[in-house]
Design a protein around this nucleic acid. Structure first.
Lengths: 133, 133
DNA sequence: GTTGACTCTGTACCCAGGTACGGGGTGTAA
DNA sequence: TTACACCCCGTACCTGGGTACAGAGTCAAC
């Protein structure tokens, strides 16, 4: 239950301190309470959010999408049916992305195998990889 | 075996004509032959490349990465062992991305289920989704 | 009570990935 | 032979996602 200054939070998550301020402005991190002198005091929850944001970005979500994902929380003020619908849409998006990535991965494995002289040296498995989805 | 003007190529792939020129500058599309008057004439291969680029972008590759993927072709001038190594690295990257996406998707499905009143309404499956990988 | 490491704000700058625009040439159909 | 849609080039501009910097205040340790 300790709290974190901007700098501590940033170091913990491996991001620049300016990025923390930027995320706050963008509404990805909630505005934290301040000390009398104006220093931000982030909670542990902010640490988890920040880590989530970075992971989600790494796997290809834009900040806008991350914000939407973070908005998908169960709370009394959210219409449940709406959250459900949005969660299902996101899940389906991810599923199709995974299919494409799998196709790409298989093409790369095939290419690597062809490089070893094993398997037929097809002209270029990469270009075809995403063709028939 | 027909050939395509910049505009036709762009329309075919659903991109802006300026994007075609941009990709040519960036080296993602090979410099095409020109008519006497200077018009570009792209081959069918360019069509396939362009489609590949857009798909690859959609699933989260940067143009730099796309260029690397396109560079992974079997041709006499490429050191085969090198291509093999790079293909394997890319394949492993994709594998870990897929794992993260799957975790996220499962969290979303769980969330949707919780929304239906089925399943325990855990506080927020989203934030935890990427925690333990 | 001064030093050094930290924080605050606002504004400016950066790179990636395009997109728009102006001024000009081309090609074809009426 | 003119109209219209297309192409060329160069350069400027835009959005997203940060990053840097200046000028000022804070706080802990010595």
């Amino acid at each position: 239950m300790k709290s974190w200054t901007s700098g501590a939070l940033a170091r913990n998550a491996g991001v620049n301190i300016e990025t923390v301020r930027y995320y706050e402005r963008r509404g990805l991190l909630p505005k934290p309470p301040r000390t009398q002198s104006g220093y931000r005091l982030f909670s542990d929850d902010a640490v988890r959010r920040l880590r989530f944001i970075k992971r989600a970005q790494q796997i290809g979500f834009s900040l806008k999408e991350v914000k939407e994902l973070l908005g998908l929380q169960i709370n009394p003020r959210t219409m449940c049916a709406d959250v459900k619908r949005r969660a299902e849409v996101k899940a389906a998006d991810i599923e199709s992305k995974v299919r494409d990535l799998e196709a790409m991965r298989k093409a790369l494995v095939k290419l690597a195998a062809a490089c070893s002289g094993r398997g037929p040296a097809t002209q270029c498995p990469i270009l075809e990889s995403l063709d028939h989805l």
